[in-house]
Design a protein around this nucleic acid. Sequence first.
DNA 1: CTGTTTATCGTCAGGCAGACGACTATGATC
DNA 2: GATCATAGTCGTCTGCCTGACGATAAACAG
Lengths: 248, 248
Amino acid sequence: MSPYDPSAYPPFAVTVDLVVLTVRRHALCALVVRRGEQPFQGRWALPGGFVRGEEDLAAAAARELSEETGLCAHDPAVPGAGNGAHLEQLATYGDPKRDPRMRVVSVAHLVLAPDLPAPRAGGDANSARWAPVDELLAVGDDGSAGLAFDHAQILADGVERARSKIEYSSLATAFCPPEFTVGELRRVYEAVWGVALDPRNFHRKVTGTPGFLVPAGGTTTRQGGRPAQLFRAGGATLLNPPMLRPEV
Amino acid sequence: MSPYDPSAYPPFAVTVDLVVLTVRRHALCALVVRRGEQPFQGRWALPGGFVRGEEDLAAAAARELSEETGLCAHDPAVPGAGNGAHLEQLATYGDPKRDPRMRVVSVAHLVLAPDLPAPRAGGDANSARWAPVDELLAVGDDGSAGLAFDHAQILADGVERARSKIEYSSLATAFCPPEFTVGELRRVYEAVWGVALDPRNFHRKVTGTPGFLVPAGGTTTRQGGRPAQLFRAGGATLLNPPMLRPEV
DNA sequence: CTGTTTATCGTCAGGCAGACGACTATGATC
DNA sequence: GATCATAGTCGTCTGCCTGACGATAAACAG
């Protein structure tokens, strides 16, 4: 082989696509934008865009995220800044036929964000929305065409990553506002996994895991009922032993 | 933005790099090749190469693997064929400065293979070898320069992926020949995690997990001592509950 | 035959999770 | 204001799994 001869190999376009997940009204939702041009014109797609010349992949993802949602990603490598959205690389998709026009390799990223107001994509409220992932992934049955390109696969991979990762990490707190109650955190797990959890056992588990939650001092009744203690995410990122997802 | 205008964005070179892991003499080892040219001439690096024009990323990784080791990857999407090496995508590395010559985005793949004879890289035995990952990742101390490019980071990520993934999947069997004993499987875990496991508890765990192991019918004494029953990997890919890695 | 090595079966105590009872503190409704 | 509905929080009990470890079995080396 003749390594690194640029002329010997066809150029690739490199993009980032974003799977932005949040929990709204007890459902796991993803951010989708409407395509304004061919191909797949008018269809919903994941937000994304080209990686620029002197830009790292994570930086490109953070930039796209900021452009689409105003969120400032909380890159583990750049701590402190941002309103807490979690960003991580998901996987890379490079099937030669995934884009009919040219060879595009897309590095998908996963973003977990707290519930946000309606998205603002280029100021056009009609061109971006939060949609329940169940709806986006239920293709064919109702005649809806599903997402553009291979974005249904990317979304499915992102959802599966989120579902499994909250098992053994404290990542579920990324779906919550800075201060939250145990019940709110439980509703996150229930929405992401699509199951009902026992409030008492859940409470015992999360409050009994050292470093997972730290008391924030106050209480709230925003969920109704008895006032609940407010917590902040603790420093622990790994949950050991993990929170087990109930079987089916 | 003006999507998909090829001239509007700089072209990227896309490569695949391989983290090929195996267990040799009770140590987790990785395949490295010696670089024949600048930059990093003479240094060890992960095997890899350019993705071709009409080639999927996984196909490129499988091709490079075959060229470097003769292994035929057992892609989950293409079952049956191959001598059982496991291949999966690891992560993508695209720092603008990771290659001093041009913008290269590398899609790293992880390969888990049974113990193999000495590698044959382009027929040159001196240019490829199995090296213990501890040795490859212990940089600076002994003055050795470490791996080329960002390959130390890629290797570290691959090792961490392997270490965590054998916890909750049956992937450790990918390090074993088609038929193996419980003790051989245990030595795989011990080598990958770098810990000692209790043979009795390990035996109880793996034989008690339905679908993990299926008896192959025979016995062997290739490890010495009492003959051990031979097993084959069962159909189960997920281990529930997982095999817990001992603390520290 | 004896010691060494490895495999395999059993036992026991502690920890954790699932099931679920009981009590508490708020707002809503009559 | 009494009652109800809603959520949160604390306990109890039981079964399963794990870690620690004793004991036995089946080969080989001397």
